[in-house]
C-alpha cells in the first residue's frame, strides 16, 4: 500500500519541531497548569471529608431540593465507604483546574467569534476538530511536550472540553434580544459597556449551559487522561482493565458516575437559578 500523503509524518515533525525549538513557553505553561492543579487538589484534600460532605449536602438542599440532598449524602457515604474518597478528590481537582482553564480561554473566544465573522471562520472548524478527534490522540503530543503526569492530562482535557463553552457563549451573545441591544446603544453604551452590561448578562443562561457541558466533558476526559499518569479515579479504572478486576472496575466506575451526577445537577442549578425570562 502506497501512501502519498504522509500527514502523520508531518504531525510528528511538527511536534518534534515544537520540542526542539521550545524557548521555555511549554515549561512556563506546564508550571502554571501544574501549580494550579496542585493548589486545587491541596485545597480539596486539606478540607476533612466530612466537612466537605456536609457543605455539599447543604448546598444540594439549598440549590436543588431535599431529595437531591439525600442523594448527595448517600453518594458521599458510598464513595468514602468504598475507599475512593482521595481518588475522587484528585479527579475533582483535575476537573476543576481543566474547567477553569477552559473558561479562561473559552469564554473570551466565544465572545470574539460572536462578534467577528473572521474569527468564527477559523474557530468553528477548529472546534469541530477538537471535539471529534478521538480523545486519546491528544495524549500523545501532550505527554511528549509536558512529560507524564497531571499537566498533560489537564491540557488534553482542556482541548477536549473547551468547545461547548465556546459554542454556547457565542450562541448566547448572538441571541441577545435586539431591542435590548438597541436600548443599550441608545442610552450611550460604549462597546465595552454594551458587552458587560447587556450582552454577557443576557447570554448568561446560555453560557452557564456551556460551562455545565464543559465540566461534564472534562470529567469524562480526566478518566482517559490517567493513561498519561494524571491520577485520580482514572488510575483505578485503568488498573481494573489491565487486571480484569470486575470489582475494582465497578467500584471506581460507580464513584465516577456519582461524582458526575452531583457536579452536573449542581452546576445546572446555578444556570437556571438566574431569572432568564424577559
Amino acid at each position: 500500500m502506497s501512501e502519498f500523503l504522509p500527514i502523520g509524518e508531518w504531525a510528528d515533525q511538527a511536534v518534534n519541531f515544537l520540542l526542539e525549538n521550545d524557548s521555555g513557553t511549554f515549561g512556563a505553561l506546564g508550571t502554571f497548569v501544574g501549580s494550579l492543579t496542585e493548589l486545587v487538589e491541596q485545597a480539596l484534600m486539606f478540607i476533612p471529608s466530612w466537612v466537605l460532605a456536609v457543605v455539599l449536602t447543604a448546598l444540594a438542599f439549598r440549590r436543588v431540593g431535599w431529595r437531591f440532598a439525600l442523594f448527595c449524602a448517600a453518594a458521599v457515604v458510598v464513595i468514602i465507604g468504598t475507599g475512593f474518597w482521595n481518588a475522587t478528590m484528585a479527579t475533582l481537582a483535575l476537573v476543576i483546574s481543566a474547567t477553569l482553564i477552559s473558561l479562561m480561554v473559552g469564554v473570551p473566544l466565544g465572545i470574539w467569534t460572536a462578534k467577528s465573522r473572521l474569527a468564527a471562520y477559523f474557530v468553528r472548524p477548529s472546534l469541530d476538530f477538537m471535539q471529534t478527534m478521538p480523545a486519546f490522540v491528544y495524549l500523545i503530543p501532550a505527554a511528549m511536550l509536558f512529560g507524564l503526569g497531571k499537566v498533560p492530562g489537564v491540557l488534553a482535557t482542556v482541548i477536549f472540553a473547551m468547545p461547548p463553552v465556546v459554542r454556547l457563549t457565542s450562541l448566547g451573545i448572538r441571541q441577545v434580544n435586539s431591542e435590548q441591544l438597541e436600548a443599550g446603544v441608545t442610552f450611550g453604551c460604549t462597546p465595552w459597556q454594551l458587552l458587560f452590561k447587556v450582552q454577557i448578562p443576557g447570554a448568561l443562561p446560555s453560557i452557564m449551559a456551556g460551562i455545565n457541558q464543559t465540566i461534564m466533558m472534562a470529567l469524562s476526559m480526566v478518566i482517559i487522561a490517567s493513561m498519561v499518569g494524571a491520577g485520580g479515579l482514572g488510575n483505578d479504572v485503568l488498573t481494573s482493565i489491565s487486571r480484569l478486576d470486575i470489582g475494582l472496575g465497578f467500584e471506581s466506575g460507580l464513584a465516577v458516575v456519582l461524582l458526575a451526577i452531583i457536579v452536573d445537577r449542581m452546576t445546572e442549578s446555578f444556570g437556571v437559578a438566574r431569572p432568564t425570562k424577559a
Binding site: 436600548a183 450611550g188 443576557g202
Partner: peptide
C-alpha cells in the same frame, strides 16, 4: 432617550437599576 415597543428592559436588573441604567452608563 428612547422608549421601545417591546420595552427592552434588562431582565437581570431590578426595576430601580433599569430606571437608573442611562445614568449608570
Amino acid at each position: 432617550a428612547m422608549v421601545f415597543q417591546s420595552f427592552a428592559l434588562l431582565p437581570h436588573l431590578t426595576v430601580l437599576d433599569n430606571a437608573a441604567f442611562g445614568l449608570e452608563v
